[in-house]
Amino acid sequence: MKNLRSGLLLATVLLSSSLQAMDYKVSTYTEGLDHPWSMAFLPDGRMLVTERVGRLRIIEADGSLREAPVGGVPEAFVSSQAGLMEVALDPDFASNQQIYLSYAYGDRGANNTRLARARLVDGALQDLTVIFSALPAKAGTSHYGGRIAFLPDKTLLLTLGDGFDYREEAQNAANHLGKIVRLNRDGSVPVNNPVINQPDAAPEIYSLGHRNVQGIVYDSQLNRLYSTEHGPKGGDELNMLEPGKNYGWPLATFGVDYNGAQISPYTELPGYEPPLLHWTPSVAPSSLTVYNGSKFEQWRGDLFVSTLAERSVRRIRMKGSMLAGEEVLFEELDERIRDVRGGPDGALYLLTDSSDGRVLKVLPAE
């Protein structure tokens, strides 16, 4: 594994962001959203979009925004980074209409990340059930993670944050801070979770030693699981996730604290997994996807990372299983990009993070 990671790192160089605007065109698909956070494509051509302020919206197949939000959405704690986050469809959505929502629960003095599932029926949620609540509840309004991915066995992964002021807890296997958890779709714990037999370990843990993971994707072509997480001042990471592994935060990091203080003298340590890539200065990676669409043949199989601070999307080129370079895309938009997804129509879709947020649609230039 170390040799593979070294090869990946050596193969990765930042390429010029010279992809010309003539190679693609960006249009506004939907507007009028308040800090949109996540999107999911429904089988009938519609789209679900979460707004961090606590609303779930339906976008019709023609791109128009349904005026009334989806009913029955659980109340989220909304403050700073806290709010309604991911929406994801169950792998069997066509037959069960189940969706999953991640959101912050609690209040300023005691809060964390929660996961609920419900059925989407006629523009409202029914049979809402909370299936997981990250513990402990902590103070503050930062670092909730919140992204969801499904594995081939249909278990789900939920990314979590370290709560910002609790970074040492990312190394404490007794709680959920700074972890990624793996759950069955009803919220129960899979019997083959990697730390389930370790004394005093939270049985839901899939991996640990994370800061604030806001990107996760399973690449079915390579049978690999990737994540991106925010560093502090620098040290953002792209990781290849493996069950039970420790990704080092805050013992090993390329980042420094916001006041310039050293967090750790180590960028790597034995027994901890180094990142495939790190970004210093910080780009603030906010989501992650693999593009497998039909519109951009040259992009197929590549990783796409939306960013907030850099106001871009990083295309991470793949050559087989190797990282083969990066391109910085969509800087001309000058927008904080919260989410990036490949649509069922082959287009690439972006969410802009603002009080007048938009869904943008990217297609090849004619």
Rank of each mutant, 00 (worst) to 15 (best):
R5A: 05
D356K: 12
R108H: 09
R314Q: 14
S355R: 15
V70D: 12
P270T: 12
T159V: 13
D257Q: 09
S321W: 07
F93L: 08
A347D: 07
F296W: 11
V130Y: 06
L277P: 01
A76P: 06
E366Y: 02
L269V: 10
L363C: 10
R315M: 11
V340T: 00
H35T: 15
G244A: 11
G109P: 01
N193R: 13
Y218H: 10
A118D: 02
V195E: 05
L101W: 13
N239I: 09
F132M: 00
R57H: 07
S6W: 02
L363H: 05
G123P: 03
G83H: 10
L101Q: 06
L222F: 00
D257N: 15
V181D: 13
Y218T: 03
L10G: 05
S286Q: 08
A284I: 11
Q20Y: 01
Y291P: 12
E273Y: 05
D34W: 13
N172E: 03
A137E: 11
L251V: 04
P190F: 04
N3W: 10
I337S: 04
F93K: 02
Q20L: 09
L89R: 03
R66I: 14
L101Y: 11
R224Q: 12
V189M: 05
I337K: 10
A284Q: 10
N96A: 06
G357M: 07
S64A: 10
G234Y: 00
P281H: 06
I205T: 07
A68T: 14
A149I: 00
E335H: 11
L15G: 15
L14S: 11
P265K: 03
N292I: 03
E31A: 12
L120A: 11
E242M: 10
P203C: 03
A201R: 11
L14T: 11
A261T: 12
P152W: 00
L160F: 04
P232I: 01
M322F: 11
D92H: 13
E326P: 02
D353G: 13
G161Q: 09
L135Q: 14
S282K: 02
R314Y: 07
Q262R: 09
P243V: 05
G123T: 03
W249P: 06
V362K: 13
A347V: 10
L351Q: 08
D339F: 00
W279N: 04
A40T: 05
H176W: 08
I196T: 04
T253P: 13
Q126N: 02
W37V: 14
L33M: 08
T253C: 04
R314P: 08
A76Y: 13
V78A: 13
T28V: 06
G255V: 09
P250D: 14
V313L: 05
G271A: 07
A40G: 07
L65Q: 07
N172L: 01
N172I: 00
E366D: 11
P232L: 01
E366R: 12
V87A: 09
S27E: 15
Y206F: 15
D236C: 00
V213I: 14
K295Y: 13
L14P: 05
